[in-house]
């Protein structure tokens, strides 16, 4: 059923995300944008010794894009930069843990796209 994607955790994170906000003087940040709906997510990273020491996201969007970005931030905190660079689309879908249909894929991946942008544009040696 299509409503499986609105699992309790998704709605809870949409309403009160754990990692929403900006980081001043982030080591890397990037925004990505879903032209289909105008949603945007910006990811901020702090890096220490090749590891993610803090990560936040800002922006606006649907329950899926916001919850996915929040879950991604929790995950990123446990990773090294190298590990994050290797993260694939499927990894993000697995993290979300709900079945995503084709039309919502962009929503689920928006945070990851922004993260990839940040990792690419890092303003210091991250």
């Amino acid at each position: 059923m299509t409503l499986d994607i609105y699992a309790e955790e998704i709605i809870d994170r949409f309403k009160s995300p754990h990692n929403f906000g900006k980081i001043d003087k982030a080591d890397a940040q990037a925004m990505d944008y879903n032209p289909a709906c105008g949603d945007e997510v910006e990811i901020f990273l702090k890096v220490k010794d090749g590891k993610i020491s803090d990560v936040r996201f800002a922006g606006r969007g649907c329950a899926i894009s916001q919850a996915a970005s929040d879950i991604l931030c929790d995950c990123a905190k446990t990773k090294t930069v190298a590990e994050l660079k290797n993260m694939r689309d499927e990894d993000m879908i697995n993290l979300l843990g709900v079945k995503i249909t084709g039309t919502r894929l962009k929503c689920a991946l928006l945070g990851l796209w922004a993260l990839r942008g940040a990792l690419k544009n890092g303003n210091r040696n991250i």
Binding site: M1, T2, C62, A63
Partner: peptide, 24 residues
């Protein structure tokens, strides 16, 4: 969010448009 509204309505068999409707 309109995408969420549309998706939940879809579970009831209701088809609406959600997005910027090509009028940004």
């Amino acid at each position: 969010h309109p995408h969420d509204v549309a998706q939940i309505l879809d579970s009831e068999g209701i088809a609406i448009r959600s997005g910027h409707a090509c009028a940004m």
